[in-house]
Design a protein around this nucleic acid. Sequence first.
DNA 1: GCCAATTTCAAACAGATGTTTTAAGTTGTC
DNA 2: GACAACTTAAAACATCTGTTTGAAATTGGC
Lengths: 222, 222
Amino acid sequence: MVTKERHEIAVDTSEESTREKILNAAGEVFAEEGFEGATIRAITERAGVNVAAVNYHFRDKAELYTKVVLQACSVQAALRDAMADAADSPEDRLRSIVHHFVRYLLDPARPDWMRRLKAREMANPSAALDELVEKNLRPLRDEFLRPTLRELTEGRFSQRELGLIASSVMSQCLYFLQYQPIIERLNPDFKNIKSNVAEIADHVTRFSLAAIREMTRQARRS
Amino acid sequence: MVTKERHEIAVDTSEESTREKILNAAGEVFAEEGFEGATIRAITERAGVNVAAVNYHFRDKAELYTKVVLQACSVQAALRDAMADAADSPEDRLRSIVHHFVRYLLDPARPDWMRRLKAREMANPSAALDELVEKNLRPLRDEFLRPTLRELTEGRFSQRELGLIASSVMSQCLYFLQYQPIIERLNPDFKNIKSNVAEIADHVTRFSLAAIREMTRQARRS
DNA sequence: GCCAATTTCAAACAGATGTTTTAAGTTGTC
DNA sequence: GACAACTTAAAACATCTGTTTGAAATTGGC
């Protein structure tokens, strides 16, 4: 029975509302400590608000977590916009998809806790993962990736094989998001991944296009 | 000052020791709840032992966690053995690396909590990740993957480019380990990934070899 | 059977946890 | 300024946390 957004125009101009301070602080703490490990007091202290504020603005800790995860993953609009300027040739379209996907995943403007929260969700899926898959990954694959791949391979592969090829492309993009800590340990010269976004996207495109071209050539021969 | 393995031969025959019961139960609970979320009582109850047993057999909760993570990841010997039967041609060697790596990652005999624990570690690295990288991933890449790739590409790529290619190969293998929950949601026909290990390994090999062949061909031309 | 060492157990400890309560402060409206 | 609605604040709540204690049970060697 609490109306939450009455004077949002007046507040949003200069300073964060208590609710937003909590959401941002909670994102960081949840990403660092996980749901169980994060304490209400750690969150409210980082946000600079009272302990009781969480239970006032959100029903309880669980509702706060859900709200945080949704905020971290509800960016599928950006992907859709990015696909608008897709080129004519399927090669250029694949290049565009990969570039936008990688750039979106590694966008330095996105707080790092979003990446870590996503990684946590994937390791131990909660109900929030379903929404992530259905609203982000499935549209990306079915509406953009799969049609482009079908065109590139001249329809020579089954649905199942096409799914595997799509997985190969997506895996390379996600790798640099998910395995950032490992990559930095393995490649000292990739210390700051985010400054190599273009190079990474270029390589993924090149590697994938090469694989598809050669596989299609082989399929044509047989 | 506690001697832990005095009569291990006598015990290991039929029943688990308390220590092993704790280690196994802790693996599951840590994977499900994370370090902070897992409670000693949840672990000891699942193991069917007393609460104090953890502090008796391990110094504290943190030491138990480290031991569990190491147990889950200390299988680099298996990889080394697998590489022994590597073939002559670099193509067959890459195929062997990929197959063994994928089979090892998706081995149905490995309890699922090991995968989830690894995923957690990668999302939020602790000190245990350093050991995982140095003892498992780096040897795999430097001793097997990189030399094979160098041979396959006829030495036409820089160290940095070779690193990117190695990343592309490893990313595909790790994808099926890490993103299992997503893949199952995205591909209903891959409901049980573990029964498709051979198919997955075949595809990764085929895709990667095709990419490398085509990229090398292009590099030769320019 | 006896002894010492090792292992298990129930109970208790101090501190931290999520949440609630109750009162004080703030804001907009008349 | 007065009133009501909304928001913050400090303190207290019961419960759960990791860990310790001290005694009971078990074990192996003689």
